[in-house]
């Protein structure tokens, strides 16, 4: 693409990524969560693929696949954390620790360190989704070469 598009893509990359991170991080407060934020960051990867070409990210393919495995495994392990009680038991909610602050009942402005396991699960799923969707786009984009139009 032209220099204009590339420059704007460069400018937009950090906002898109940080916005995705915001969506993931505030998943338990505002609309969003792991899936949505992961999809937003994955579209940052798609933006790089379209503006700079997929070859530019060829080396990141392996990183993405590792990230995906790590995210999925982390999600499953987080679900296993509650197995002292039941699978998927929210072991941290309401305990008063780092993520275990309780929220007031009813409308409130919200605080980041609530939700128990939810923020951690959001991150695991976000990692998984961004790596998964990103590597799908990347793999399809990498189909270059021999029989291009």
């Amino acid at each position: 693409m032209s220099v204009v598009v590339r420059t704007v893509a460069r400018l937009l990359l950090a906002p898109v990524a940080i916005f995705g991170a915001y969506v993931v991080m505030h998943g338990h407060l505002t609309p969003g969560g792991g899936f949505q934020g992961g999809a937003v960051i994955a579209s940052a990867i798609a933006l790089v693929v379209v503006a700079f070409g997929a070859q530019r990210l060829r080396k990141q393919k392996k990183t993405l696949s590792v990230l995906e495995d790590v995210g999925a495994t982390a999600f499953a392990v987080l679900a296993f954390l509650g197995i002292g009680v039941t699978f998927f038991y929210n072991a941290l909610a309401g305990t008063g620790g780092l993520f275990g602050q309780t929220v007031p009942i009813g409308p409130n402005p919200g605080a980041l360190n609530t939700g128990g396991l939810l923020p951690l699960m959001n991150w695991a799923v976000g990692l998984k989704v961004l790596a998964g969707l990103g590597s799908m786009v990347l793999l399809l984009g990498l189909l270059g070469g021999d029989d291009d139009r």
């Binding site: 407060l29 505002t30 609309p31 969560g33 899936f35 929220v103 009813g106 409308p107 409130n108 402005p109 919200g110 989704v129």
Partner: peptide, 29 residues
């Protein structure tokens, strides 16, 4: 969503059902 929700939720103003939204998210992915 309770963050900045209008005053009076969910007693006076109803909230829409969350389950179908969760199901739809799953179905979209």
């Amino acid at each position: 969503i309770y963050t900045y929700a209008p005053e009076g939720t969910p007693v006076d103003i109803p909230m829409v059902m969350p389950t179908p939204q969760a199901l739809t998210l799953t179905s979209i992915v």
